[in-house]
């Protein structure tokens, strides 16, 4: 009789690894209809080789990969904060080409993989301040934009630089409606673009950029509101006049061309005096130029930043 209670073989014992994950498994089953698993798609295994930067990087606590990859504003992939993660696979990044043209001696279309090989990648840990009054600290991997500008030899008539994101109405769910005028456009003054803080990023946390963060190549301008840091760039042009920018086209009285982080100029929807660092309990004060004054305030000497907001 006792035999009944003796296990026939080792196979009857739940394996330890499975046992330890029991809560996750149950959670997974219950939540299956609700959950769309975090999508790191292309970033899965592609590690980048890079140097660490200490001059420009902050030593503040970085946000987690989960926070950085599941709370995004990337309207091409949907206007909700989770949409970019959910729809990340709709962004096709294979054989990406980046065209650099306009007022340059050597206009070219680069194969992205080839282009990245020309530069030494470095890690820049930057604060990112969204115009919606939240912020994160993100360890980007990239190279200074001025290196690319040098490569194409700008003419002296080039005063501004304009950027354009991918246009792919067939695949990108956000582009099926005219939420914004597609493609997304951004711009900088040439001295802003040449500032060593301004980088083109191709990765974060040591790996290739996840799609929802603007893969395969995006701009990062840490002293400006996040929407200036255009994602998934296909074209860069050097121009003589101030270029059109997407949010400025949408609501010109709310989003200026400069859009420097400035606690003294309020946006009609958000007080810019304070921000919530994602993961923190209490709001903190927002700093002028997002705390990068020492590197960038000279760019705006003599300018009325309330007028040129």
């Amino acid at each position: 009789m006792r035999k009944k209670f003796i296990l026939d073989s080792e196979n009857d014992v739940t394996c330890e690894a499975l046992f330890k994950r029991r809560r996750d498994i149950i959670k997974g089953i219950i939540s299956a209809p609700f959950v769309l698993s975090t999508n790191f798609s292309n970033a899965e295994n592609k590690h980048l080789i890079f140097q660490k930067d200490i001059k420009y990087s902050t030593n503040e606590q970085t946000n987690t990969i989960k926070q950085i990859t599941s709370y995004n504003n990337f309207y091409e992939l949907g206007s909700g904060k989770r949409d970019p993660m959910i729809n990340a696979n709709s962004l096709k990044t294979d054989n990406w080409k980046l065209t650099v043209d306009g007022l340059v001696e050597k206009p070219q279309t680069f194969d992205l993989d080839e282009l990245i090989k020309k530069f030494t990648l470095e890690e820049r840990i930057y604060r990112l301040r969204c115009v919606e009054a939240w912020s994160m600290v993100i360890p980007w991997i990239g190279f200074e934009l001025n290196k690319l500008i040098k490569l194409v030899k700008p003419l002296s008539s080039a005063k501004y630089i304009s950027f354009q994101s991918i246009l792919d109405r067939e695949n990108l769910p956000g582009q099926r409606r005219e939420i914004l005028q597609w493609p997304y456009r951004e711009g900088l003054r040439i001295d802003e673009a040449n500032n060593p803080l301004t980088i083109l990023s191709v990765g974060l946390y040591g790996k290739v950029l996840p799609n929802q963060n603007g893969s395969p190549i995006r701009l990062v301008v840490p002293w400006k509101y996040g929407f200036k840091s255009i994602k998934s760039i296909v074209k860069i042009s050097l121009v003589s006049e101030e270029p059109e920018t997407s949010w400025n086209l949408e609501t010109p009285n709310e989003y200026g061309f400069y859009s420097n982080v400035n606690p003294y100029v309020n946006h009609p929807r958000w007080s810019q005096k304070r921000e919530r660092r994602i993961g923190e309990f209490r709001k903190r004060d927002t700093e002028m130029f997002n705390g990068y004054s020492e590197f960038v305030s000279s760019l705006y000497k003599g300018m009325d930043l309330k007028k040129f907001f």
Partner: peptide
């Protein structure tokens, strides 16, 4: 409560 309990992380819960 379901949204918060299930592993559907809310990154900016107050907002």
């Amino acid at each position: 409560m379901c949204i918060f309990v299930l592993p559907n992380d809310v990154i900016n819960p107050i907002s």
